[in-house]
Amino acid sequence: MKSRFEEFHPLVSFIFFVLALSLFILMIHPVFLLLGLIFILMINITYRSVEQLRQWAAFMIISSLFIFLLNPLFNERGRHVLFMFHQHRITAESLIYGGMSALSLVIIMAMFVSYNKIMTPNKLLYLFSKILPQFAVLLMLTLRFIPLMKRRLDEISSIQLSKGISVLHGALNKRVKTGLLYVQVLLTYSLEEAIQTADSMKARGYGTRVRSSYEYFKFKKRDGLALVYLLLLYLLILWGRFNGFGHLTVYPIMESWQLGTGDIRIMLFYCLFLGFPLLIELGGYIRWHILN
């Protein structure tokens, strides 16, 4: 079953993800980041993308560890020296800073996992067709060609293998050369064949009149409301951020990580923003159970 958030207009989901991304970059504060992580994980669980998340886990852990460990090594700034490492000052500031960077990266990557689940190619294509219609046609053609080219490459490699020409045997330079020969056969063949694709476009009237675009998604009232909700909260958060809330200054002097009232207010908005998809699903769940 499709979730309710997935049924929103693609513009809503796209804006949500773009703004959320900017929040994860702007709101560098341990508490905010932890909350962000919790929300993103919950979103991933709600939209059943935990499996995909697991596939990315290794990459995420390695790169965040890398950042966490390297930052203190490169960076000697800060007042609180924890210990010396080969005449290198390891400071508390640099560790905290590295940790926050690593966390932010993890959140961003985890966010992309759910983004990929919700923003299907079809939705993105639709958005493009609204602002860049010709580019959208080009993108659609490319998306259509990619699986075709893959299949052709498979075919080419088996045919050439039957002729004794293979990428699996022989010296490295010969294998690389053979590989590109396959691509070259693909190039010539596909360009020859694609003239027919262009003819088929022309035969169906492409370029004769102003093109309309099929509304796969209708912009409904609730989409408008959702956008207002998201943008309003975002502006409030942004305003708070410019007034110094929701951000932990590490250099030159580390602030206390504790939250003031201003911070807490911003945090509330932050949670309401990131929790949007969850609230929507919750609302749907409640309504379903009341109706039945």
Partner: peptide, 20 residues
């Protein structure tokens, strides 16, 4: 249309070229 198709073919080949 021919130009679009040509661009799409080249982009698709660039994208899948690593397969072999």
């Amino acid at each position: 249309p021919r130009e679009l198709v040509l661009l799409a073919v080249l982009a698709a080949i660039a994208a899948v070229g690593r397969v072999p």
